[in-house]
């Protein structure tokens, strides 16, 4: 017989996670299933159907080349999600590496690494991304790298702070005392214990990645037409603001909803795991 007491599900505590998760889940699902759920191809031109408003055949209307806006928005989700996932991953991996190394070795290593992170952090993010894009060249892959680099200092700071508190624990001392190797201690003892807050941070980074990617694409530095991305759709849409406002409204709303969903999820996870807030 199980002795565990089953607590009733606490809606108040998890409502942000559930709502944010539902939004994010839907968007992720649409992104993954894009080729199957999108009613049309995102590339098919149809000169007869140029700049048509929302209708039964084209739920969100068509663009200046007669392409179905709904299908393009769904396919753009795919690209945005991919960039966001990979960029967050770049930031997470390198940031965690730098942060834990700084915490673990301390001293001069810590000083130099963290000072560098702080300086990187003091750059306005979008500017750094733009400059990196200039030298890497405009492509969606490079946008992903540039955004990932921006995230490194944030993750490094967090990783360092959490790793420091883990390092003070008894079992790490013991692991050191019995002569476990540096790598083994870092991977086996420290990493599992700092992962949770880093993953919460990743949700927030994710939403920021969506914003940055769409800004870069909006400026013409990210995804290149005809590949649909919310940023470049919005940019083209601006040219037809007066006659076809949906071309500007729809992709922006998609960005907004995605960012909102991820922020909610991130906030919710942070609150749910914060012991100080638990008994409220």
């Amino acid at each position: 017989m199980s002795t565990a007491i089953r607590k009733p599900f606490n809606w108040r505590r998890w409502r942000l996670v559930v709502t944010g998760g539902a939004i994010v889940g839907t968007i992720l699902l649409l992104a993954i299933l894009a080729p199957w759920v999108a009613p049309y191809s995102p590339f098919d031109l149809n000169v007869a159907q140029m700049l048509k408003g929302p209708s039964a055949t084209h739920l969100l209307g068509t663009d200046e080349l007669g392409r179905d806006v709904l299908s393009r928005v769904i396919h753009a989700a795919r690209l945005s999600m991919m960039v966001a996932v990979l960029a967050s991953l770049v930031g997470l991996v390198f940031g965690t590496l730098i942060g834990t190394l700084a915490a673990y070795f301390g001293g001069i290593v810590d000083l130099i690494l963290m000072r560098l992170m702080e300086i990187l952090f003091s750059f306005p993010a979008i500017l750094l991304a733009i400059v990196l894009m200039a030298s890497l060249g405009t492509s969606i892959f490079n946008a992903m790298i540039a955004i990932g680099i921006i995230f490194i200092p944030g993750f490094a700071r967090l990783a360092r702070a959490t790793a420091e508190s883990v390092l003070r624990q008894q079992y790490v001392e013991q692991a050191r005392a019995i002569g476990m190797s540096h790598t083994r201690i870092l991977v086996r003892e420290i990493l599992p214990n700092i992962l949770a807050p880093l993953l919460v941070e990743a949700a927030v980074a994710f939403s920021y990645a969506v914003l940055l990617e769409s800004a870069l694409s909006f400026l013409g530095l990210g995804a290149q037409p005809p590949d649909p991305s919310w940023g470049n759709m919005l940019n083209t849409g601006r040219g037809f603001m007066g006659v076809a406002p949906w071309l500007s409204i729809v992709p922006g709303a998609a960005i907004f909803l995605t960012v909102f969903g991820f922020n909610m999820l991130g906030d919710g996870l942070r609150d749910a795991f914060d012991p100080q807030l638990r008994d409220e």
């Binding site: 922006g252 907004f256 909610m264």
Partner: peptide
């Protein structure tokens, strides 16, 4: 929370 999710270039477009 809502304002924090609005891309500024979209807001600019809507304002125009």
């Amino acid at each position: 929370s809502l304002l924090g999710a609005v891309p500024n270039f979209w807001l600019a477009t809507l304002l125009v």
